[in-house]
């Protein structure tokens, strides 16, 4: 029965095991898991992928012990302000970045191991009313924060020891930035989505705001997850937590949209909708890696889509032990991490 429940089901086709359970870890000291992620970690000349789990007051680092088991290496205790999320830093080694706050992010901290003092420590990167944050390649982090009067958008460059080497201010749009995504293959280009439902483009080297392009009124509160430039067009993967259900396309969870940055015109390339039986507004949170998207639905299931084909490829049904609450792609597409609030994390190969 347990094996049966672990087998993902392809809802609009034959039963297909496109998600294979690789391993599971359980943080028994965790009262309520808030996030899970992966990080590259180098120790004694060996670089390996480790799992990071977060509860409101702790962040734990897990190393692979055997093909199917994990052991806790270290736990950072952050008791003053609750941990809200782990901020993945692509291609960065031995650094974990976390956002802390109450309802909104109040500070960003780096968690690291110092070989100089042979100890784990953490350092403050930024404080403020932070609305959106993203980790970029080459140890960079961009965040937007608001005061009563204005919005600040800033990029911080980290040193390997966790200090901030350099800061660059980016020109803020008039509307509040809700999410960022780096433009893959273009080191100096960054996109963001705004509360006014536009996609904006920056030049990270100069800080210039290059373009603001409207997404459309049918898709309010769009969130950008991934962007890449091809053949003179900017392709942006958006998720739509508040999009309305329509007869023609159901409930779009993810959408790939092609923008012409020269003219600001756009066209939808592909929709990825809620699988049959999950109609209505049931999307809680999602994550995108390459051309695959994953989202937790309010039913407690995790759904996985091929975003370029617009097809739901697999559904992880809720376990008898509890609903899924977290879905994250491991760094480099090493698999899908599905987490429950009780601290259970399962790694699936996709």
């Amino acid at each position: 029965d347990v094996a049966e429940q672990l087998t993902p089901v392809l809802l609009d086709g034959p039963r297909e095991e496109s998600l294979q359970l690789v391993s599971e870890l359980k943080d028994s000291s965790c009262s309520c898991a808030v996030d899970v992620s992966t990080v590259w970690w180098e120790a004694a000349g060996c670089r390996e992928l480790r799992v990071v789990t977060a509860s409101e007051s702790t962040v734990s680092l897990w190393e692979p012990l055997a093909p199917d088991s994990w052991g806790k290496v270290y736990t950072w205790h952050l008791r003053e302000i609750p941990v809200i999320q782990i901020i993945p830093l692509p291609d960065t080694c031995n650094l974990v970045c976390v956002a802390l706050g109450e309802l909104e992010i109040g500070e960003i901290r780096l968690l690291l191991y110092s070989s100089e003092t042979d100890s784990f420590k953490h350092s403050l990167v930024k404080t403020g009313n932070i609305k959106a944050v993203v980790g970029l390649e080459d140890q960079r982090l961009v965040s937007s924060s608001r005061t009563m009067q204005e919005q600040q958008v800033e990029m911080v460059l980290f040193s390997e020891t966790g200090g901030s080497k350099d800061r660059q201010t980016l020109m803020p749009p008039e509307e509040t930035v809700t999410a960022f995504a780096e433009v893959e293959g273009m080191r100096e280009a960054l996109v963001g989505t705004t509360a006014g439902n536009s996609v904006v483009v920056w030049n990270l080297k100069t800080g210039q705001l290059l373009r603001k392009m409207h997404v459309g009124y049918s898709y309010p509160a769009s969130i950008c997850h991934r962007a890449y430039s091809d053949s003179g067009l900017l392709f942006v993967v958006l998720s739509h937590p508040l999009a309305k259900e329509s007869e023609s396309c159901g409930s779009p969870v993810f959408r790939v949209v092609a923008f012409n940055p020269r003219t600001g015109r756009s066209t939808g390339v592909m929709f990825s909708c809620l699988p049959p039986g999950h109609a209505g507004r049931q999307y809680l949170e999602g994550d995108v890696w390459d051309t695959t998207g994953a989202a937790v639905l309010t039913s407690g299931a995790v759904a996985v889509w091929d975003l370029l084909r617009g097809r739901c490829m697999a559904v992880l049904c809720p376990d008898p032990a509890g609903h899924w609450a977290l879905a994250r792609w491991a760094t480099g597409g090493a698999g899908l991490l599905a987490g429950r609030r009780d601290g259970t994390v399962r790694l699936y190969r996709y």
């Binding site: 100069t206 373009r211 053949s231 003179g232 092609a258 012409n260 003219t263 756009s266």
Partner: peptide
């Protein structure tokens, strides 16, 4: 450059917009 429903497309859009945008 080429013409499409999305208007005139340029492969060098990033460099061109950076040259045109206010510093």
């Amino acid at each position: 450059c080429s013409e499409s429903d999305l208007g005139l497309i340029s492969l060098n859009w990033f460099e061109e917009l950076s040259a045109e945008a206010p510093p």
